[in-house]
Design a protein around this nucleic acid. Structure first.
Lengths: 168, 168
DNA sequence: AAGCCTGAGTTCAAAATATGGACTCATTGG
DNA sequence: CCAATGAGTCCATATTTTGAACTCAGGCTT
């Protein structure tokens, strides 16, 4: 796009909500724990066995997830069993489904070995679903039509011809 | 959903493309480097200054990104300058834009302090864009209508009544 | 009643990574 | 010739991770 050099991103990491998300969950174990959680895994030992994550790390990560409101720590009791703990996703946690599925599609496209195992489908008409950018009326938009906007201005800015004169 | 306990996810981490993606880029610095790269940052020292990442870590991460095909390491020369190195995103890297934007929306919703700075807009009609699940005809689908499918079967499976009898 | 099992952790030493700072090296501008 | 810049490397210290063993409580078995 821009053929002049961009030296800084227009949104400082510290007030970027994407960067903030990454601070919270941008860590291999976090992400893998959340992946399992999306599929319905809820118990300490089940996460541990599925991922083979060190128990101390799992313990720390679950605490952080609860702490940030992505999971909840809850006692439950199956009939005739003693009380146990489960870690279900909250609504906040569940809404990670969309970014995760977008990421899955990326993985399907670029990292797949064989056919993907997982997909989404419409209960209404059985069609396969995919992630897309849509406008306010819900109409999909072509990639070439997508513009970045930062604080209501288009990014990157048009190269002003001066750019060449007033160096750096 | 299911009120029986799910003890394993239906897609083993090792053949899950989401898990594979996380192995590759699921790390704080990776993700932050990619965030900056999406905005057009391309040079070693610029990443370093923007993120304040240790130079040795940056060096290792960029190598890994190049190695996995997400970035390219390229010499370039501005007129009258000596050759320099830049790390532009490849097509593979650029397509992380969609998952990243989905993640940004999640951050906007759950982590924001004040108004978000970043958004996408349609060049065609200037409307704000958002990420959505659409069916094969590009029609948005309501969250309640979304089903997980694993190897062509709905997940989680209906609870068979037997489930209670044949313990565990 | 004694022992066993399970889920949910905690503890701890050893190994792997990250951090911050100084250092290198090549090229170019003054 | 000197200083500056970009793109790294090197290294000692600090922090995290790992893996394994240990704890603790409640219920189940015999």
């Amino acid at each position: 796009m821009a053929d002049f050099v961009i030296r800084r991103s227009p949104v400082k990491p510290c007030d970027c909500n994407l960067a903030r998300s990454f601070e919270l969950i941008g860590d291999r174990w976090m992400l893998l724990i959340l992946r399992s959680a999306m599929y319905g895994v809820r118990r300490f030992d089940d996460f541990q066995a599925e991922l083979d994550v060190p128990r101390s790390v799992l313990s720390a990560r679950l605490a952080a997830l609860v702490d940030s409101g992505i999971m909840e720590r809850r006692e439950y009791r199956e009939e005739g069993q003693r009380a146990r703990i489960e870690y279900p996703l909250t609504k906040m946690g569940n809404q990670l489904g969309l970014p995760f599925f977008a990421m899955t599609e990326w993985g399907d496209r670029w990292l797949a070995e064989g056919e993907p195992h997982f997909g989404l489908r419409s209960r209404a008409n059985g069609q396969k679903l995919r992630v897309a950018l849509v406008d306010e009326r819900g109409r999909p938009v072509k990639p070439q039509d997508v513009q970045f906007v930062v604080d209501d201005k288009v990014w990157p800015p048009e190269e002003p011809d001066k750019a060449r004169r007033k160096s750096r």
